[in-house]
Design a protein around this nucleic acid. Structure first.
Lengths: 196, 196
DNA sequence: ACCTGAACACCGTTCAAGT
DNA sequence: ACCTGAACACCGTTCAAGT
């Protein structure tokens, strides 16, 4: 009856963790820092989350949900080249707005908080679909891998501050996207790309 | 005179750290584990390395040196398309052979062990040169960024086990490389790629 | 029911001794 | 000179009490 009233919640804890993540990287999301932020002692967090690892997994999950909402869906009748560009641009915008959380999801870290195979397959389906529309079924998987590798690689280098030679980085992204989508479009009923 | 004889060396410590890195990720390279591996107590490591952070930086440096040796140099008279493919393939091979160390150098981690601006500029010079030979000076930077983003992104996804839809991953890499190099070659004295 | 302080294990690092 | 045990700060986690 005299039971203590809850002073925080799982959602608040996850939000605090998310803030700490973007402020100081994953090593800054400390049980102590999170507890501090939500106004409780560290041991109390274990009533809501199983531990630090589970907390970080929950942050990753929340981010993934936000990301797929930010991407939205593409209409079936849309020009695949146009749709592909739009998806890539929205994806990049989300990543740049949430760089640390993006790294959590797609970074090279341990397999800690990786997507499940199903989630992963579901996430790649739209791109595979667009790639099929663009280059046909035979090269769809290869084309999708080319596109995602470019987009992820570009964003990852951008977040890691690897583009240090000046120039317009936004333009470089558009350039890359255009070259790729044009090249793949031209491949529709094309000769083999293979050399040698 | 009765001075204790050295029981380890900086090189041995770095090598031990490198092994632990590839075996268990960066969080496994612990001062205790390294000390254990070289047969000394943890405090003794501080005679050779300034601390854990410096040790990891030294591992990164060593890896970078190995990498640039593995890449080698490209002859000036080589076909840029051929040279570009060769460099990309050697780069990928090195990364797949040293995935954790690669992540240390190019991962999305904090700025901890990042290349200096000069090293970074020096490292990108060959690719810029080849890109210039391929597409001309105006688009060279954009083209180099497209190429490196694809190569890094592909490798990074491969290491992170993000290609889970089957298919031949080696072939996908060659496919991407071919599409890119062909598209950029066609651009030599080409119309603008920009749309809209 | 939820909270807390105390305690433990673990890791990086320092330092006063040892040889 | 280089080594070591002891000690400290820090962090994740557990648990016996408290209300």
């Amino acid at each position: 009856m005299n039971a203590a009233r809850a002073r925080t919640s799982g959602a608040e804890i996850i939000a605090a963790g998310r803030t700490l993540l973007e402020e100081g990287g994953v090593e800054a999301v400390t049980m102590l820092a999170v507890a501090d932020r939500v106004g409780v002692r560290a041991p109390s967090l274990y009533k809501r989350v199983a531990g630090r690892s589970a907390l970080i997994a929950a942050i990753a999950e929340g981010t993934l949900a936000e990301l797929s909402e930010a991407i939205g869906t593409t209409a079936d009748d849309e020009d695949p080249a146009v749709a592909l560009r739009a998806v890539a641009i929205r994806f990049r915008a989300f990543a740049l707005a949430n760089p640390r959380a993006y790294g959590l999801l797609f970074g090279d870290e341990p397999t800690e908080h990786r997507l499940t195979p199903e989630a992963s397959a579901r996430a790649s389906q739209p791109v595979i679909g667009l790639a099929t529309a663009l280059v046909g079924p035979e090269h769809a998987l290869n084309a999708a891998r080319l596109l995602t590798a470019f987009v992820h690689g570009f964003i990852s280098m951008e977040i890691g501050d690897a583009f240090r030679l000046g120039g317009n980085v936004d333009e470089a992204f558009r350039y890359g996207l255009d070259v790729l989508v044009d090249a793949l479009s031209g491949q529709r009923r094309g000769r083999s790309t293979r050399r040698r």
